[in-house]
Simulated scan of single mutants.
Amino acid sequence: MEGTAENRGVNYRTLEELFRVSKRKSDTMRYELSVSILEIYNEEIRDLLDNKAKQPANKLKVEELEVPGLTEVRVLETGDVWKLLESGREYVARSVGSTANV
């Protein structure tokens, strides 16, 4: 989905187009884009952009397609999103593991 620097995946290409359109239409429309990253693991939701979390974050819950309390960060370009995705990957309390090969 993300691809590499040489061969961008669908996520990167979609973000590029989204920012290109918002810039092109900026004289007639005002766009504000923001990003949230969450993890659902063992029926628990974690905010992967919560900078304070050196331990498992407060439990969040989904309310009618919303997650109250989830961190939302304003982004201005694709690079901003990529930095946040990297931050989400490095989240200290993120659940990581493997499935036993049978």
Rank of each mutant, 00 (worst) to 15 (best):
K83W: 05
L85Y: 02
L38V: 09
T78K: 15
N51C: 12
E43I: 08
L76R: 10
L76N: 15
G79A: 08
R30E: 15
P56R: 06
S87N: 03
E90S: 07
V62R: 12
E32F: 02
T71W: 02
V35K: 07
E90P: 03
N51K: 11
K54L: 13
I45D: 10
V67P: 04
E39D: 08
V75D: 05
E72K: 12
G88H: 00
N51G: 13
R30H: 11
K52S: 14
I45W: 04
K83R: 12
L48E: 09
E90K: 10
V73H: 04
G69W: 01
K52Q: 12
E72V: 08
Y91N: 12
V73S: 04
N42M: 03
S36R: 00
G88Y: 00
P68K: 11
V75C: 07
V81R: 04
E63C: 11
E43Q: 09
N51I: 04
Y31W: 13
T28C: 14
T78N: 06
Y31T: 15
P56C: 02
L38F: 12
L38T: 02
K54P: 06
D80P: 12
A53P: 04
P68Y: 10
W82D: 15
E86F: 01
M29R: 13
V62S: 13
A93F: 00
V35W: 01
E43W: 03
V81F: 02
E32N: 12
L33W: 06
V81C: 11
L49Q: 03
L49P: 03
A53L: 02
R89T: 12
L85E: 06
R30A: 11
V62K: 09
R46N: 06
L60G: 07
D47C: 05
G69E: 05
L84R: 01
E86L: 11
E90I: 00
Y91P: 01
V92A: 12
K54T: 14
P56S: 09
V92M: 03
E90Y: 00
E44F: 10
V81S: 14
V92Y: 01
E64F: 10
V75I: 07
T71R: 01
M29A: 11
A93R: 01
V67E: 06
E66P: 09
T78F: 04
Y31L: 05
P68L: 10
A93Q: 00
D27Y: 03
D80K: 06
V92C: 09
W82Y: 11
S36L: 07
I40P: 09
E44Q: 14
D27N: 06
A57N: 08
E43K: 02
L33F: 09
S36N: 03
E43F: 05
E43M: 08
T71L: 01
K61Y: 08
T71P: 02
E63A: 13
K61T: 14
L70R: 04
D27Q: 02
V81Y: 04
L84A: 07
L85W: 07
I40F: 09
E39K: 00
L85K: 00
D27G: 06
E63G: 05
L84C: 05
D80Y: 00
L60F: 03
V73K: 04
W82V: 14
K59G: 15
L60N: 08
A57L: 02
D47Q: 06
V62M: 10
T71C: 02
R89A: 14
R89H: 13
M29Y: 15
D80I: 05
V75Q: 05
V75T: 07
V62Q: 13
K52E: 14
L33R: 06
L60Q: 10
Q55D: 13
V92T: 13
A93C: 01
L65G: 15
